[in-house]
Each structure stands twice: as C-alpha cells, then as structure tokens.
Amino acid sequence: MSSLTTPSRAASLGSVSLGRKIKDRAVQGLVYLAFALALIPLVSVLWTVVGNGAKRLDADFLNHSMNGVSGRDTGGGAYHAIIGTLEQVAIASLIAVPIAVLTAIYLVEYGANGRLARVVSFFVDVMTGIPSIVAGLFVLALWLLTLDFGFSGLAGALSLTILMIPTVVRATEEMLKLVPNELREASYALGVPRWRTILFVVVPTALTGMITGIMLAVARVMGETAPLLLTIFFTKAINTDPLSGPQGSLPTFIWEQAKDPSQNSIDRAWTGALVLILIIMLLNLVARIIAGRRAPTGR
C-alpha cells in the first residue's frame, strides 16, 4: 500500500490519457444522440395525435355512436367502438392469458427441454411470426365460413387471442426463468409439493414481470385493425352483445373515419386514435399499480 502513496505512483494513477477522454466523450455523445433519435417518433406521434384529437374529445364523442351520422356531419362519437374494443380485448385476454400462462409454466417448470416442450416452443415461435391479417383470415375461414357463425365481437376476440398467446407465453416464460432455483428448492425442502410451489412461490415472485408482459400484449392487440375488419365487420350502431352481430371497435372506427374525405370524419378519426392511446395508458397505469403493490422487495 505504501508504494501507492508515493508521489510518482500517485501521478500515474491520477491521469487519464487524452485519447481515452475523447473516446469517452464521443461515445457518450453518440448514446445521447441515439436516445434523442428514438424519442423523435414517439414525441411526434403523441404531439400530432393530441393536437389533432383534442378538438373532438368531448362528452358527445364518448357517449354517442355514429348511428344516423354521415361522414360530413359534425357530432357523432365512438361510444359503440369503445364498447366493442373493451369487450373484444377483454374476451381475448380471458381466453389467451390462462392458456399462455399455463403454457409458459409447462415450458419452464415441467417441460425441462423434453421433446414436447421443444415442439411447443417451436410452434410458439411460429405463432409469433403470424401476420395479424392471417390470424383474421384463419378465424374467418374456420369460425365464420366453416362453422357458419356470424360476424361478432367474439370472432374478433378469437383472432386477437391468436395474436396474444405467443407474446404472453414468451414474456411469462422469460419471467419464470428469472425466478432463482434456490426459491423452488427452499420450498421443496419444506415438504411443499411442486404445484403449490409454483402457485405460491414461483408465480408471485414473477408476477410483476408477467403483468407487464400481459399489458404489452393487450396494448398490442388493442390496436390491431386487419383481423377485426374480417371478423367483427362494421357497424355504426351500438351493439353491446359481443356474441352476435357486427360490432364496432376503435381501430376499425379510426380506419372507417379516416377513409372519408370530410374534415369532420378526419377529426373523429384523430380523436378515436387519442382515445385508444388513453385507454392503453390507463390500463398500463392500473396494471403497474397492482403489480407494484405485490412486487418482491429487498435484495
């Protein structure tokens, strides 16, 4: 230690070469630049949507449908579309989340790289790559044309389910893998059976991450348009029954309104987009509050 305090050693410890300082500065600058570049599209989208959408964000928009309103008329609203989107996404989540979470639990806790686990994992990867319109076409072909059910919110929800499952499986799988094996062993060593260990130790530990993954999937499918066009069809009227008849939804509402050349329609489209973003933000916020309350502490 004493040699470190002699003047010559201290001098050589203290100085950083100019070349390293310059490199450090340059890389730091690049990182900030990349961050700024990544923010541009985000800020720009929010700016435009809020700027254009705030105009029609009024009570009329939130509690009126487009029934009897033509493209050129002022007024009208997205009530039917908001109801439709909430119902469709809720049904899709109710179907997709249990299937996906159980699949992930199988893959991580039981599959252990067995043949079945590898096959399931492969097909989850394949499903991740399915274009959303193909999911819509699949439901159209199977549910509507082959099984002969009519257009409905449920049909739309089924196509969203197909899109949700792989994202939730992957997110949940990653979170379950992060749970240290020591916790499983600690539980086994107390004479706790495996299923209770998974239910009361492993899943609660991973829950925050799982909820984040589920919310990302919900946010993603909430904005899907293509599969809904093929499955829920289109209506201007309020249909609160997701089991029968065409239903509205926010993405198809935006698409429909944006097609119309009238400025009043275009305004409605922007407001629809703003409402969609707000709903997704709100859901995210709620999920974060719930997850935050139950997060693992310490360490």
């Binding site: 240290p180 600690a186 539980s187 130790v201 530990t205 829950l207 693992p296 502490t297 310490g298």
Partner: peptide, 8 residues
C-alpha cells in the same frame, strides 16, 4: 448455503 427467504 445462501439464505433464501421467499422475496414476496
């Protein structure tokens, strides 16, 4: 070997 209380 390592203390492993349940974190939740």
């Amino acid at each position: 070997q390592r203390p492993n209380p349940f974190p939740t």
